[in-house]
Structure formats: structure tokens, C-alpha cells
């Protein structure tokens, strides 16, 4: 059974211009002990998806339809108190900007002890556990550093502390929201390696959000490509990266500076912009920017099967199969 199952999830924001349909019919699942990556450019609904999973949404957001199941249990039907019991225990999070993740006026130790408030342990035991977690993520002299404040740590260290906090309760699911975006490249590699090791040690699943294709390829088992609030392609990292089926995934891979072999003055981009999510275009959501656009694109494509574990929402897949 998968740790996280999202089925046909639609989320809208109420805005003065009308309903902004941020997520439409999103389905994905995170199997046990697997790392699933979500890629997509800014505004594709990654953050909305996360906030829906932990149910900490903006006041003007509404879940219009769908279901989110954690280990088979529906999250969307839980009361606020039941949901709070899951946060930090079953689902935990690592956020994008490590400089903003921790309370600046409380010591790291105090914050790490506070999040264990559910456990009936003595303060010294909680402290010991916190120090153990810091050691696990590679912070030297953890016992002393518990007394320090976040501003006394570097960005990379703060992100490791965030990971330590997130894994402390041995959650079933860790959601990492672009955890390396704010860090420099060498730190990024370190954090990714550490995350992989810890995932194996703790035995949790990870939902890893990033717009960095290289990181996803390095870390994840499976990948979900999102565009403008829809899942356009999903499958194993190998399938999606080596044999992209959706024109958007292909365009995204072409834009990755790591893939460019020829010397160029201008980095490639995908022409056009994300469509207006208040007044959605008819048909395929990517049609406006697609170079393979044809008559069939006037109708919204369903998820088509490329192979049993590789799916994409494009009319061309069916065509290719019949051809």
C-alpha cells in the first residue's frame, strides 16, 4: 500500500478576478520507502499541493474535489485536532528557505525539544534525542550547539537542522519543498546525499519538490511532472528522463543547462507563459506553448499509458501506439 495517495485533487483560490484553479484533477502516489519527485516551473501548483497535503492552506483556498489518503486513511475528512496530531508525527516538512525555517529568538535545542511535546519523556531525554538527531545529520558538537540560536548557524547547517527536526519523529512521509534551492551547489550535493542516507535509515517515503532536474534525477525513484496545476507526466526517473512522452517534459529537459552540449549565448526557454488559471483555455493545458500542437489538442487529453509505470497526458501517445 502506498504511503500517500492523491486522487483527482482540485484546489481553487477565491480571488477578486474569480476562482483561480490552482490544481485540477491531480493524482499521484508515493509508495513506501520511495522518493518521488515533483518538477515544474513556478506557478505549476507545487506549493498548493503541499499545503493541501498538510492542510495548512491559505484562507482563500478551497479543496473542490478529490481525496488525499495517508496510509489508506482519508486526510481531508479529519478534524483539525486529528490533523494536527499527524503533522510532525506522520507527515513532516522541510521548507525551502533555511534562513526562515527556525524561530530566530529561541535556541535550536528549545525548538527541537518543543516539537517532541507529544512524547512522555523527560526534558533531558528529549534533549539527548535532539542532540542525537543533530549528530545524525552531521552537525559537530551537537550537545553544545543545542544552546545556540539559528543565526549562529550557516544556511547549510540550518537546513540540516531542519531535516533533523523533520525526521526526529520517524514520520511515514517527509515532504521536502525545494530544500536545496536556497543553498549553493556544493551544499546541495551534500544535503541530497544526506537525505538519501537518512531516508534509508529512517525508512520513510519522501515527496521531493524541486525545479532542479539534476537533483530529481540524482535523488528520486519516481518523478511527477506538473504544468499549470495538472500532472502532465509521471513515471520512473529513468523512463521520464530518458524517454519523455509529453512535449512539456521534453521542453523542460531541453532547457536544463546540464543537458546543453553546444556552446550558446542564450539559454533555451519555452516560449509563451503559463495560461491564466482563472479563465482556463479549452482543451490541452499546454497547447498554447506546444510545438506538436494539432487538431486533437482542442480536447483535453486523458492520462495515456506509455508503459505500465509511465503515463503522460498527451494525444500523441495514443497516436504513436496505433502507428
Amino acid at each position: 500500500m502506498a504511503v500517500l495517495d492523491i486522487l483527482d485533487l482540485s484546489v481553487s483560490y477565491t480571488t477578486p478576478r474569480g476562482d483561480l484553479k490552482a490544481l485540477r484533477g491531480v493524482s499521484l502516489s508515493v509508495p513506501q520507502r520511495r522518493i518521488v519527485g515533483i518538477v515544474g516551473e513556478s506557478g505549476c501548483g507545487k506549493s498548493t499541493l503541499i499545503s493541501a497535503i498538510i492542510r495548512l492552506m491559505a484562507p482563500n483556498a478551497q479543496i473542490r474535489s478529490g481525496s488525499i489518503r495517508l496510509k489508506g486513511a482519508e486526510i481531508l475528512e479529519l478534524s483539525e485536532a486529528q490533523m494536527r496530531a499527524l503533522r510532525g508525527a506522520e507527515i513532516s516538512m522541510v521548507f525551502q528557505d533555511p534562513m526562515q525555517t527556525h524561530n530566530p529568538v529561541l535556541t535550536v535545542g528549545r525548538q527541537m525539544i518543543d516539537i517532541q511535546y507529544r512524547d512522555k519523556l523527560s526534558k533531558t531525554e528529549k534533549r539527548k534525542r535532539a542532540a542525537g538527531m543533530l549528530a545524525l545529520v552531521g552537525i559537530p558538537d551537537p550537545e553544545a550547539r543545542l544552546n545556540q540560536y539559528p543565526f549562529e548557524f550557516s544556511g547549510g547547517m540550518r537546513q540540516r537542522i531542519a531535516i533533523a527536526m523533520a525526521l526526529m519523529a520517524k514520520p511515514a512521509l517527509l515532504i521536502a519543498d525545494e530544500p536545496t534551492t536556497a543553498l549553493d551547489a556544493t551544499l546541495e550535493v551534500q544535503i541530497i546525499k544526506r537525505l538519501r542516507e537518512l531516508q534509508e535509515e529512517v525508512g520513510c517515503s519522501i515527496l521531493f519538490i524541486s525545479h532542479h532536474l539534476g537533483v530529481i534525477a540524482e535523488l528520486c525513484d519516481e518523478v511527477v511532472v506538473m504544468y499549470a496545476g495538472e500532472v502532465v507526466e509521471s513515471g520512473s526517473v529513468r523512463d521520464v528522463f530518458h524517454n519523455p512522452a509529453h512535449p512539456y517534459t521534453r521542453a523542460l529537459l531541453d532547457c536544463d543547462p546540464g543537458h546543453i552540449k553546444v556552446r550558446t549565448r542564450n539559454l533555451p526557454t519555452i516560449p509563451g507563459n503559463i495560461p491564466d488559471l482563472v479563465h482556463l483555455p479549452q482543451g490541452c493545458i499546454f497547447a498554447g506553448r506546444c510545438d506538436k500542437r494539432h487538431d486533437a489538442c482542442a480536447a483535453r487529453p486523458d492520462m495515456a499509458t506509455v508503459n505500465p509505470s509511465h503515463h503522460a497526458a498527451c494525444h500523441l501517445i495514443a497516436v504513436r501506439e496505433t502507428a
Binding site: 498538510i54 494536527r84 499527524l86 503533522r87 510532525g88 513532516s92 525555517t101 530566530p104 516539537i115
Partner: peptide, 14 residues
Amino acid sequence: GEGHIRTARAFGLP
């Protein structure tokens, strides 16, 4: 509205 409050909530603090 700051990030660390979101963190505190994401850890289920009352």
C-alpha cells in the same frame, strides 16, 4: 506570516 511560524504549525504545535 513568517516562515518559522509555518514550521511550528507544520510540526503540529498547539
